[in-house]
Every structure is written in C-alpha cells, then in structure tokens.
Amino acid sequence: MGLVFNQQNSDTERMEFIQILGYNIRCLIIERKGPCKTIVLLHGLGASIERWSELWPLLKDYNVIIPDLIGFGYSDKPLIEYTIDLFVKFLEELFSKLEISNPIIIGSSFGGQLVLEYSLRHKDFFEKIILVSPAGTLERPTYVLSQYIFSGLYPTIENVQRAFQMMANNPDYKVDENTVKDYINRMRLPNSKYALISTLLAMRRDQRLQNRLVEIVIPTLVIWGSEDSTIPVENIEYFKQIPIVETHIMEGCGHTPYVEKPHEFYEIIKKFIES
C-alpha cells in the first residue's frame, strides 16, 4: 500500500513548504478522500513542480506528491555541493517526513536517474517505478542538452524558447509561453545557476549507472519519446536486456512526453500501474 491520508469529505490540494535537510522545500500534495495508492513525481534538471502540470490533473485515483528538488524550482538553493548522495538523502528525509511508504514513483530525465539511484540503495521501497527518458546512461552531453544548459545560464526569452522547442523536437508542438516565463524567473533566482551546474557535474561524475541496471528488482516501466534528441531514444536499449523492465516508445514525442501528449502518457502508465 502507498500512503493513505485520513479520509475527508473531499479531495484537498495544497502547495506548501516543508523542512528537508534543514532547508525550505516546496511541495505539492494532493490528498484523495479515500484510501488509494500514492504517486510521487520527480522533475528533471532545472525543472520544477509545474513541469508536471499537464499530468497531475489526470491522476484522479491517486494521492500525488510532487516536490521541487533541493536547488530547483522555488525550493531553497543553498551553496553546497549537489551530489547524488545529497539527493538520495533528500528523498530519504522527504519520504520519512511525509510518511510515504511503498509508493509508485515517476522520474523524468535527471529525476529518473535519482529514482534509479534510490531504488538500487533501497531495493524494496517502491511498489513500481516509471522512468521517462532517464539520465545516467549518456556518455557525453548532446547538442540539445548543451543548449538547454546554455538557456539556464543565459535565460532570455529567445534562448529558453529555442531550447524548449528543441527538446520537444516537433515543429507542430508549441512551447507554452508561461513555461518559458516561469523558467526564466526561476533561473534568475539567487544560486539557481550554481545549483544547475553543481548538479550537472554530479551527473557527469556518476557514470556507473548503466552497468548497475541489472540490479533492478522492482517492476519498472521505461518510456521514451521517439524524437528525443536531448537523451536519444537509443538509450532505451540499455533497459531492454532486463527481464523485470518494460519499455515503451511514444511516437512523435521529444524529451517530455507527459507534457507533449499527457493523455496518451497517462493511459500507458495507468495500464502498467494496474497490471
């Protein structure tokens, strides 16, 4: 069972700040009125809770927890070294403080890399794992990833719009204007750029992940966009050799299929969760 909240007359949705590792961490918490499973969503590098805004309204049958990772979104951005170990400790305290046990977890890009790291250290914690274009298998940054990092360091409307459009890699997809503005606002907050680069260096240092994928013991679904040029879809091959892992390629999608085709994405994960 996942986290079960006290039964209430109606669902509640709240955005609040909680103390994790001594820092203020922003978290969206959606509590359903009856007992149900919990889904935790982890965003990618430089992203925030809002990146999941197309998906969470569809998760009506689940409690939903979405944090801004430490250093990102509107959470505190301390001048510390952002290591994989730090993020794992962050998740340990988050789950403990919110009394979450055995949830379903969805991690996108860097969030997917964190999910894998956490699950390899806590092998029976998650009920099921869903990874969306997970980081951790790239040998070197792609051109699109480099453009995204550049847009974080130099967050102008033109740079950010171009980077997000390249990540979708679909001329028919139009990047939401509010997404661009919010990203610019967040990357102009104190220490945002520092946290971005420090985390990127941690990701680059942690190159052992692809050799450890055979250790996955929790039912796992890996979803990739067919047009992903940020972390190319060829990286899904690393996961196809593992019996407990299912893979799915979403046609016509780039790096964030849950943003580009949320309803199709939801139907895919719903089938996996209920199987």
Score class of each variant (00 low, 15 high):
202 A>T: 13
224 W>S: 06
206 D>N: 13
225 G>E: 07
219 P>D: 08
222 V>D: 01
219 P>H: 07
220 T>G: 01
205 R>V: 00
202 A>Q: 08
217 V>Q: 15
207 Q>I: 07
231 I>P: 02
203 M>A: 12
220 T>L: 06
208 R>I: 03
213 L>S: 03
207 Q>T: 02
221 L>P: 00
203 M>D: 10
210 Q>L: 09
229 S>H: 09
229 S>M: 14
218 I>E: 00
213 L>T: 06
206 D>R: 10
206 D>I: 01
202 A>M: 10
215 E>M: 09
227 E>W: 14
211 N>E: 12
214 V>K: 15
207 Q>E: 11
206 D>G: 06
203 M>S: 12
202 A>P: 12
214 V>G: 11
224 W>T: 05
212 R>H: 11
216 I>K: 08
202 A>K: 05
231 I>V: 12
205 R>N: 12
205 R>Y: 04
221 L>M: 08
232 P>R: 11
203 M>R: 14
230 T>I: 05
231 I>G: 09
205 R>E: 08
215 E>Q: 12
215 E>P: 12
209 L>K: 09
225 G>Q: 12
219 P>L: 00
229 S>P: 00
221 L>K: 02
232 P>M: 12
202 A>R: 02
231 I>M: 07
218 I>G: 01
213 L>P: 03
228 D>K: 08
225 G>A: 11
209 L>M: 15
224 W>N: 02
222 V>Q: 00
222 V>M: 01
210 Q>R: 11
211 N>V: 00
220 T>Q: 08
205 R>D: 11
229 S>W: 13
229 S>C: 12
228 D>E: 06
227 E>F: 13
229 S>F: 09
213 L>R: 00
216 I>C: 07
219 P>A: 04
228 D>G: 08
212 R>I: 02
224 W>D: 05
209 L>R: 11
213 L>C: 06
222 V>P: 05
232 P>C: 08
209 L>G: 00
224 W>E: 00
212 R>C: 06
214 V>Q: 09
220 T>R: 01
213 L>A: 07
228 D>L: 08
205 R>P: 00
230 T>K: 14
213 L>D: 01
226 S>C: 05
214 V>S: 12
207 Q>P: 00
202 A>E: 05
208 R>F: 14
222 V>K: 01
213 L>I: 10
206 D>A: 13
207 Q>D: 14
209 L>W: 03
210 Q>A: 13
214 V>M: 01
207 Q>C: 09
220 T>M: 05
208 R>V: 07
206 D>T: 07
223 I>E: 02
221 L>N: 02
206 D>L: 04
210 Q>P: 01
230 T>P: 13
231 I>W: 04
226 S>A: 15
202 A>F: 10
210 Q>T: 11
209 L>I: 07
231 I>S: 13
232 P>H: 09
222 V>Y: 01
206 D>P: 04
216 I>H: 07
221 L>I: 03
209 L>N: 06
212 R>D: 12
224 W>Y: 15
215 E>Y: 03
218 I>K: 04
213 L>V: 10
215 E>A: 04
206 D>W: 12
211 N>W: 10
203 M>I: 15
222 V>R: 01
204 R>Y: 10
